[in-house]
């Protein structure tokens, strides 16, 4: 048996050694990791408009080089931050909360914890050949943890033209299919969001009934699919004030 002093000294020495080592490693890798993260997020946004960025046959957004992703994002995507009343929030105000102050810097899971009235909403506008598509970011809850997605909406602000989903910890092979199986996100293409002003887009268990608004669910992943429906209906509704401003401004 070792003396108590020895035990305390040993643990202190070990933990400080580990702490210094890990901190150093984190500091060294931090900048590259942050850049990787930024490119990853930009790629996620672009995935929603994958049909319009001029991919070659059989190519996926995931195969694009980092440089190409940055090029598309810098040239074709404009980003704004809007609040729940539909007003555009300027970069300086956002900068006070998220370093950088652009829509891409917004941490959706932090926004999810805020009061509904105070949330900031990132909005991306993808313009190519004179046509604008709006990409909204939504976040909700799946079975185990958060799920989120980017939905690309046509200029009429009603037709979905693309979607991408991701999750933190859904079951592989079941809930995780929202991300792993590209056919799930593809099913959203062409669906309408509003029916007579009401949110109608949804994921239906047991197969789509109304082809205008319904998307096939995933068998064995009812909770995740319900989470996707809830996330879409609530998340897109947040943008309604801003969308009605665009519409009334005659665009």
């Amino acid at each position: 048996m070792h003396s108590t002093n020895y035990v305390i000294m040993f643990i202190l020495a070990l933990t400080s050694l580990v702490a210094v080592g890990l901190t150093t490693l984190r500091e060294v890798t931090y900048e590259t990791a942050e850049m990787n993260k930024a490119i990853f997020n930009k790629r996620e946004v672009i995935k929603a408009v994958a049909d319009f960025i001029g991919l070659e046959e059989g190519q996926k957004v995931g195969d694009l080089s980092d440089e190409r992703v940055l090029e598309i994002f810098n040239n074709d995507v404009k980003q704004v931050v809007v609040d729940m009343d539909g007003n555009v929030v300027d970069q300086q105000t956002v900068n006070g909360i998220y370093k950088g102050g652009l829509a891409e810097h917004i941490d959706m899971s932090k926004e999810k914890k805020k009061d509904e009235k105070e949330r900031l909403l990132p909005l991306y506008m993808f313009s190519k050949d004179g046509k604008t598509k709006y990409i909204v970011s939504v976040i909700g809850s799946g079975l185990w943890d958060e799920i989120w997605g980017n939905i690309a909406i046509e200029g009429d602000l009603n037709t979905v033209v693309g979607a991408s989903f991701d999750h933190k910890g859904e079951t592989p092979g079941l809930g995780a299919e929202i991300k792993d199986n590209p056919s799930f996100a593809a099913k959203f293409k062409g669906k309408k969001i509003y029916n007579d002003g009401m949110m109608a887009l949804n994921v239906r268990k047991g197969g789509a009934k109304d082809m205008t608004y319904d998307v096939d669910g995933i068998s064995g992943a009812t909770v995740t699919a319900d989470g996707v429906t809830e996330m879409l209906q609530r998340g897109i509704k947040y943008y309604n004030p801003y969308f009605s401003k665009i519409k009334s401004s005659g665009k």
Partner: peptide, 17 residues
């Protein structure tokens, strides 16, 4: 736990996806 954190940091650094 240290080794697992090292794995995590290195993955973030080398291959974020």
């Amino acid at each position: 736990a240290t080794l697992v954190t090292v794995v995590e940091l290195m993955l973030k650094y080398l291959n974020y996806p």
